[in-house]
Each structure stands twice: as structure tokens, then as C-alpha cells.
Computed example of a mutant assay.
Amino acid sequence: MKKRSFMSMALAVTLVPGVALAHGPTRQKITLTTEVAAEPAEVWARIGDFQDMSWHPAVHSSTGENGNEIDATRVLSLGAADGPTISEILYKYSDEKMSYSYRITDVLVEVLPVTNYSSHLTVKARDGGGSVIEWRGAFYRGYPNNDPPEDLNDEAAIAAVSAVYQAGLDALTTAFGAPDS
């Protein structure tokens, strides 16, 4: 009996490393920032309304319910009135801290190749005047299983989210101007 127990334990120990190698995707995280000349209150007045994302060049329109209340929802129409949509829900909001956090509840991976996406947008005072706008997100790639196609892998997800954030931050830099060095 002791010999059989030892063999079972040896077999289990041998198999554990193989199990550790068989895992799915890892959560990706990105943070992009920009600095603008406008003071935080002015920037927040423009981007702090969860229901209004008209400041982003990819957003044709946004509709939603419940303003900036927790569990408020919005649907972003991209590009044109009949363009693809992204549905989102607000789960954290602080006017005082000039920040909010939201999750995507519905998007086609052909539109944004991610799953389980959450994001945080914040405005902070910049040393020397102006503001720092930070947009960060965490997400999984669009294909949840092993061996994803190229357009749904980690690199595609990171590139797509980075492009969305950069386009929005660039638009804000254009709108508010870059700070003097």
C-alpha cells in the first residue's frame, strides 16, 4: 500500500508543472497620459460627464441613462449614426477626485478586440500649472482560448486600446493646448 501511495504522489507531483503551463490569456494593462495647459476644473468640465463622450474623435454620438450615478449606462455610436456601438456601465465616479471608472458591457470583438474590459479616466493638477489626463485600462484579448488568431491576440488588444486612448488624449491636447515647458 505504501508503494502505491508513493507512486500516486510522485505521479501527481510530476503532472503539476504541466498543469501550470496550460493556462489561458493574461489580463493586459495599459496607461496613457497627456499634459494640457488648461487647469483641471476646465478639463473635467469637458470630460467629466459620463454621458457625453463627444470630445473623442471616434465617437459620433453617445446616449445613456442616469447621468453620473453608479450603474449609469451609455452607448457610444462610433464613426456615424449607423456605426458600430459600444455599451458601457459606470461603476465608480468622483467629481471631487475628477475621476470615473467604467466597464464595457457589450462590444463586438471586430470593433474592439477585447473582453472583460474596464477603464479609468482621471484629471490631476500638473506641477507648474495645467493638467495631467490619465486614461488606463485592463482587459483580456478578444479570443479567450489558447492560440488566438492574430487579430484577436494580446498584441492586437493592446494596440487597439492604445489607439483609442491616444486618439482621445490627442484630441484633448489639441482642444486645451500643450503646457509651456
Rank of each mutant, 00 (worst) to 15 (best):
S118Q: 15
E96W: 07
A38S: 01
T105I: 10
G177F: 04
P149F: 07
P144K: 14
P40V: 01
L121D: 01
H60P: 07
L11F: 11
K124H: 15
A45S: 14
A45Q: 09
S61E: 13
E155F: 07
G177H: 09
I30H: 10
E39M: 07
G67Y: 10
R103A: 06
S131T: 01
V109T: 08
V109S: 05
G83R: 10
M98A: 06
G24V: 03
S119V: 03
R136P: 05
M53T: 04
H23R: 14
A159F: 06
R136V: 04
P113G: 13
S62L: 03
V161Q: 11
K92C: 11
A10I: 02
L15K: 00
R74W: 01
T105A: 04
S87R: 02
P144C: 08
G64M: 01
G142Q: 02
R27V: 14
L112M: 15
Y117N: 00
K97C: 03
I47D: 07
D71W: 07
D49C: 03
R27I: 05
N146Y: 09
M9G: 00
F139M: 15
A125T: 13
M53G: 13
M98P: 13
G83L: 06
P25R: 05
A20G: 10
K29M: 10
T14A: 12
S99I: 12
D154N: 11
W44E: 03
R136F: 13
L172N: 04
A125L: 07
S101H: 14
I30P: 08
R46T: 15
L121R: 01
V107C: 02
A138Y: 09
S5W: 10
A45M: 06
A41K: 13
T122L: 07
F6V: 04
Y102H: 02
V123D: 03
L15A: 07
I158D: 13
G79D: 04
D147G: 01
L169H: 05
S54Y: 00
E35A: 13
V109C: 05
T105E: 02
L108M: 10
P57I: 06
E110C: 09
R141A: 03
V13C: 03
G24F: 09
S87V: 02
D151M: 06
N153K: 08
W44Q: 04
N153A: 11
T73H: 06
R27C: 10
Y93D: 00
A72H: 01
F176K: 00
G67H: 12
P113D: 11
P57V: 05
S87P: 03
P144I: 00
G24D: 10
P179W: 00
Q166N: 08
P148G: 08
Y91F: 12
P25K: 04
A125K: 15
T115Y: 05
V109P: 04
G18Y: 05
P149I: 07
S61M: 06
A178L: 13
Y165H: 14
V109I: 15
S5T: 14
E110I: 13
G168F: 07
V107I: 03
L32C: 03
G83H: 09
S181C: 08
A38M: 05
T31E: 15
D127W: 05
A20W: 11
G83W: 04
S99L: 14
P40Y: 03
D71K: 11
V19G: 00
L32S: 11
L108F: 08
A171E: 13
D95V: 06
I89P: 02
Y93P: 02
A81S: 13
A157N: 12
R74H: 02
I104Y: 05
A125D: 12
L15P: 00
